[in-house]
Simulated assay, not measured.
Amino acid sequence: MFTHNSRVRTRLLPLAMAAALVACGCGCGARANGGGKPVIAAAFYPLAWLAEQVAGPGFYVQNLTKPGAEPHDLELTPRQVIDVGESKLAFYVKGVQPAVDKAVRQHAKGHSLDAESVVRTLPAPQDEAGDGAADPHLWLDPTRFATVATALGERLARVDAPNAAVYRSRAAQVVTRLNALDAEFRTGLRDCARKEIVTGHSAFGYLAERYGLTQVGVAGLDPDAEPSPRRIADLTGLVRRTGATTVFTETLTSPKTAATLAQEAGVRTEVLDPAEGVRPHSHDDYFSIMRRDLATLRPALGCS
């Protein structure tokens, strides 16, 4: 499973301390904005967004990752570990955030939903594939994300049976919107001069598979990984051979490596957002991010 080996440190509180904190309950530090509502602990932005759409106002959705933070770097506070354990549902993607994986495994095993468990996953890039390693960026395929929305609606229907029809209805509405987004991408990327998308890190495998593109990642799944000089030289040659005009950087990670490749290859850079998070005070949401990505891809790939 994808663990971001040397970069991510999962400093969770010792089990004995965690047990003591859980035992004292909410009185040890009340949640800031729960308002007494049942809580969905969502690991990072796209899951928090989806949970808000499907759960509606009856739940408080707690995003464990602060706005503007790179989700792969998350280290949970003791309070957040308690919140995961006390939540009605812990909603996450296994393999993105080892700290969340550990908190769920230890404190929320019976009330969690791993989005990866309800869709067909893609393997991690070949250079990172361990035993059963999967690419976790499934939300970048709207059709897979629609499947997750349906599964979330069903899970909430079991959590709050008297309102089951409401959650299923909200999930169906989200699915309709995601299917419309998928149609926009299929139309917009149907006739393109180029198929290769050269990205700062390998976050766009699901998007590439869905729309007939080929992802070429400068780094692997770890956005902070430093490719070797040999890798940069190989990619420079590939960019030139394919006629690619653009190397894509991202919003929450350093553009340095991708910019180096672009300079070596004599091409430009553009931002392609993996929708892993939004900046503080941003008015973006999942749909606006995805549509902006489509608008960025079309000229870069020479789409008619």
Results as ranks from 00 to 15, higher is better:
residue 3 T to P: 12
residue 122 L to H: 10
residue 180 A to N: 10
residue 60 Y to F: 15
residue 70 E to P: 05
residue 89 L to A: 09
residue 62 Q to W: 02
residue 198 V to Y: 07
residue 124 A to L: 04
residue 303 C to I: 08
residue 265 A to S: 14
residue 105 R to W: 00
residue 126 Q to I: 11
residue 79 R to A: 15
residue 261 L to A: 07
residue 158 R to T: 13
residue 45 Y to I: 10
residue 38 P to C: 05
residue 269 T to E: 03
residue 202 S to Y: 06
residue 176 T to D: 15
residue 135 D to N: 14
residue 149 A to T: 03
residue 27 G to R: 14
residue 199 T to P: 13
residue 230 R to Q: 13
residue 176 T to A: 15
residue 304 S to M: 03
residue 237 G to Q: 07
residue 92 Y to L: 00
residue 171 A to P: 08
residue 90 A to S: 13
residue 292 R to D: 00
residue 14 P to W: 01
residue 258 A to I: 04
residue 96 V to S: 09
residue 179 N to P: 03
residue 211 Y to I: 00
residue 42 A to G: 12
residue 200 G to K: 08
residue 255 P to N: 05
residue 19 A to C: 05
residue 157 A to I: 06
residue 213 L to G: 03
residue 198 V to M: 07
residue 33 N to E: 12
residue 121 T to R: 08
residue 225 A to W: 01
residue 154 E to C: 05
residue 194 R to W: 03
residue 92 Y to N: 05
residue 262 A to S: 11
residue 45 Y to A: 01
residue 94 K to Y: 08
residue 163 N to Q: 14
residue 294 L to N: 05
residue 156 L to K: 07
residue 250 E to L: 10
residue 299 P to C: 02
residue 36 G to F: 13
residue 57 P to A: 14
residue 66 K to T: 05
residue 145 F to Y: 11
residue 209 E to N: 14
residue 221 L to H: 02
residue 210 R to C: 04
residue 111 H to R: 13
residue 50 L to T: 03
residue 208 A to V: 00
residue 195 K to I: 01
residue 97 Q to G: 07
